[in-house]
Amino acid sequence: MPNLHLIYDFANESLPQIWLPPVVFFIAGLIVLIYHLNLSKEEDGVHGPFKPIFPGADSKGINTKTKGIVFGALFTLIGCVVPLLLYFSEAKMFQFYQRVCKDKSYQTVQGRITQFHHSNSPYHDTERFYIDGVYFEFNDNTQNRDGYSVGTFKSDPLKQDLFVRICYLDEGKRKVILKLETE
Rank of each mutant, 00 (worst) to 15 (best):
F88M: 09
T114N: 10
T76Y: 03
N3V: 11
T126R: 09
H36K: 01
C167E: 13
V81W: 11
F136M: 04
I78T: 13
T126E: 13
M1H: 10
T182D: 01
G172W: 02
L20Y: 07
V46P: 06
I7A: 05
Q17H: 05
I113S: 01
F163E: 09
Q115H: 13
S89V: 06
Q143S: 11
P157R: 05
A11Q: 12
G56I: 03
V46R: 13
Y106E: 03
F129T: 04
F153V: 09
F88Y: 14
T182F: 03
K41A: 12
S149A: 14
E90I: 14
L85R: 11
E13C: 07
C80Q: 07
L84R: 12
I27T: 08
Q110A: 08
N38C: 13
L39S: 06
M1N: 10
A57P: 00
N38S: 12
I177Y: 02
R99F: 11
L74Y: 07
H47G: 05
L162Q: 08
D156Y: 08
V46Y: 10
V46T: 13
T76F: 14
I131E: 03
A91L: 08
N141I: 05
F163C: 05
L33V: 02
I34C: 11
A73L: 09
D58F: 05
H5W: 06
E171D: 12
N63R: 03
T114Q: 08
G68M: 03
P83A: 05
K67R: 14
R128Y: 10
Q95A: 15
V24M: 09
F153Q: 14
D132C: 04
L30F: 15
S59A: 11
T64E: 13
E43T: 07
K65H: 07
Y123L: 10
L20F: 11
I69V: 11
T64N: 06
L15M: 13
L4I: 08
G68T: 04
G29N: 08
V150C: 11
K104T: 06
H124F: 12
V109G: 06
I31F: 11
K51E: 14
D9C: 04
K173Q: 06
S59C: 00
